[in-house]
Design a protein around this nucleic acid. Sequence first.
DNA 1: GAGTGGTCTAGACCACCCT
DNA 2: GGGTGGTCTAGACCACTCC
Lengths: 240, 240
Amino acid sequence: MAQPKALIGSSSTLYEVVREEIIKRIKNGTYKPEELIPSASALSDEFNVSPITVKRALQDLRSAGFLISIAGKGSFVKKQSRVLRKLDVSRLVLGGDSLKLLSITREKITDATMLAFNPPSEPMLCIRKIVYIDDAPFLYDATYISRDVGDDLIEEFGKTFVISALEKRSIQVTNTDLIIDAAPAGGQVEDVFGIPTGYPLLRRFYKFTTNHKDITVYGMLQAPFDQLACTISLPGKPTK
Amino acid sequence: MAQPKALIGSSSTLYEVVREEIIKRIKNGTYKPEELIPSASALSDEFNVSPITVKRALQDLRSAGFLISIAGKGSFVKKQSRVLRKLDVSRLVLGGDSLKLLSITREKITDATMLAFNPPSEPMLCIRKIVYIDDAPFLYDATYISRDVGDDLIEEFGKTFVISALEKRSIQVTNTDLIIDAAPAGGQVEDVFGIPTGYPLLRRFYKFTTNHKDITVYGMLQAPFDQLACTISLPGKPTK
DNA sequence: GAGTGGTCTAGACCACCCT
DNA sequence: GGGTGGTCTAGACCACTCC
């Protein structure tokens, strides 16, 4: 067969060359946000490679958040519009957000990152919920609370953020510890957000210490990397 | 051919089933950190699927940081040991770290996230470097500085963090703005860390305002998700 | 040389969407 | 029905490692 067409980019393998060329076209506006890109077979003709090689490139582009592919329709350039929020995590819900309760269970904390908070090893009350913005899933939250609480309070956990429910009962947060990390999507979060395995997530783990010695709240917030970034402003460093 | 072996996991496709089974074996200790897992052809025999399907599963596992594959040797379970560091970004180098200067150029800031800091649109001095821990790349840093500085200072940028060099000249940081996000690896960082395309990164963008009105420092720190997480402790929330 | 992972291709099949 | 993306397989080739 004919020699594959020479293309821009220092990549070695064919699918990398195709991938980088498509990225270039997205960045320079040849393929515009929300719009359909040429089909795999059309691209395979243009680049003179197998359709399967093009599909391999598209797979990478989905994992990197450049594209969304819909069987029967085609591949679309993803619109990039990310929300910036303050790192402070004590309010989940802002105007226009809505909550969906997923489950309330009793579980042990097993996540390796959360263990850095030295949580109790006994099973805790675990509340999982999704925060929506404009009917699109925005945050996935799992909250663990260290003490048995009344049924009325549990019911309220489904409607509001745990801290708000506690404050109504004059339980105040005295300290907030946070761990921020990135992680590849896997398991339940893939389904919640409709993202492929390995899609980068921004995660915020929190530990709220309260003025009730028996009540400490642990939790984790997750969002796809292209939906959320966190900001914080720190006072000027002392002269050291 | 024979019916593919029924396996655990609610996944629909074959490679997802294989992938989840291998994850399960890593988590339950069947495949141990640093150790070799069975070859693709051995796994394909066991699962009764094509070797290519197994390779597809292994590809996902590499992207999610579970495995490292070396041609001619095999696939190894990645050892998970992550560093926790305070969010404060003013010191790159701790004991045992070393720096490698990559380049000093003049560039405009083009990164979409960094533009949230409203940096100047003119070209700036750009210093790229890598921080090593135990001879392994740990952080990738790009620093932009807004003013022409002397050659002696530029030379120092290659050896130490920009803020330290400035402080020696009594230029103090009066405010630090940070943006933390996650992002898929792409381009130069892939080579620096030896990670596949799309590998999740934790990124910290910083803007240092100083007591010199002409001197503002912008920059970005990047690290693979499995090497670094950030911690911060916030004072108790006021009663609202 | 045998085994390994990785790429590239061809061909088949399926599910989905649109007309 | 024809086009789309997605999966699965088979077969070939390459580069690498280890014996």
